[in-house]
Write a protein that binds this DNA or RNA. Structure first.
Lengths: 218, 218
DNA sequence: ACCTGAACACCGTTCAAGT
DNA sequence: ACCTGAACACCGTTCAAGT
């Protein structure tokens, strides 16, 4: 007990921040993300991330209603990060044609999934399929798909992309990159005969390129 | 105890089968599948499916090494069912061109996912990403993708489908239907503005059709 | 051969209590 | 306002024991 008090006072002198000042929420999210990525599964427990954060497990309930709420917070953060990636991709291809814009959006999606697997797994975890109780998450998820939708909509309006409709094309594009990302995350790619020299990034680009040929009118 | 023996003899006369005669394994799989489908998640417990099967939870360990092994058994069964669906689809389109064959294989995949959600969720559950300890599951999964691969390979050989390679095209096709199936299962489809009159089946067909335009040489 | 009962080391969640 | 400690009702898994 006394050793504990001693440690607490030492922590103030070090860079380690006290969780009594409002950053436990962030710390818990960080620990959870690390564990999801290590275990390639949403398999952390409240008790262990609380312990890693140097706090009793019940302290977590001051910041999250339950484990699902913690997952929702991670997912929401993920959709916001994805939106940023999409916007960055569109900024870089602002002066190029719709085909390249769409290609880069797809690549951004797949790269996001592989570079932020913790966020991505939370975003599409079955526990969060119903987002009714998390309106902010719902909104963040909707916002994330606006860039894709707008790019396809513009492409169709300009006569570059074929229909049958914005909805179907957007759904097809999303399905393709989502499926690829899922298969890549679960290690089901590169076990089916692909040459080892080919990177997942190159495979993704080829797959998206093939899809776009179906979208083009010419 | 004596009541138990009495029941056992009565069970032979009824259709209810005694779990002392080798069908507990099957019963547990059935109960687990039902729960996965009800909860839209691999969230059953050994204890509850054992209880539903009328048996102590420890009895399950006589038939499965652990929970993961039970999941693997369900997944393996799923891949075998999927293979049957693929073969049935190819049988029905044997006299038609590669485009229609591929279309129907894709539809078979998506329909399988929606009609056997319990199996599908087990097949791609993160716990089974590494199939090293389940060689039969590994083989069943590989076998399931042979029809798709062969159809694309034949289409490319015959000059109907464009490359760049069988691997890339097969991966693209798989990604598309896998992503669509995942999104449909998690209820992320039909929330994005699609007309309510359009069924998921029709959406799937449109999405696959769009993809195939990219595959065709002409 | 197959199942039971007791036990172990865990979980998520609640709540009164401390500072 | 934020965290602790004790408690509750669960888990998966193991193992000796029963039939």
């Amino acid at each position: 007990m006394q050793e504990r008090l001693f440690m607490a006072s030492r922590e103030k002198k070090k860079k380690k921040v006290s969780y009594h000042h409002g950053d436990l929420r962030h710390a818990l999210i960080g620990k959870a993300l690390k564990l999801i990525e290590q275990r390639k599964d949403v398999a952390f427990t409240i008790r262990e991330i609380a312990s890693q954060a140097g706090v009793t497990h019940t302290a977590a309930y001051r910041h999250f209603a339950d484990k699902r709420a913690l997952l929702a917070a991670i997912a929401e953060e993920g959709f916001r990060l994805l939106t940023e990636e999409f916007n960055a991709a569109l900024r870089e291809t602002a002066h190029q044609d719709r085909t390249i814009q769409l290609h880069d959006l797809g690549m951004a999606y797949i790269r996001f999934a592989l570079e932020h697997p913790g966020h991505f797994r939370a975003m599409f975890h079955a526990d969060l399929a119903k987002r009714d109780s998390f309106p902010d998450l719902e909104q963040a998820a909707k916002d994330a798909f606006t860039p894709l939708r707008l790019t396809i909509e513009n492409g169709i309006k300009e006569g570059v992309f074929r229909g049958p409709s914005v909805d179907v094309s957007a759904l097809a594009a999303w399905s393709l990159v989502h499926g690829f990302a899922m298969l890549a995350l679960e290690q089901h790619i590169a076990e089916h005969g692909e040459a080892p020299a080919v990177t997942v990034d190159q495979l993704a680009s080829s797959v998206i390129g093939l899809f776009e040929k179906g979208l083009l009118k010419t």
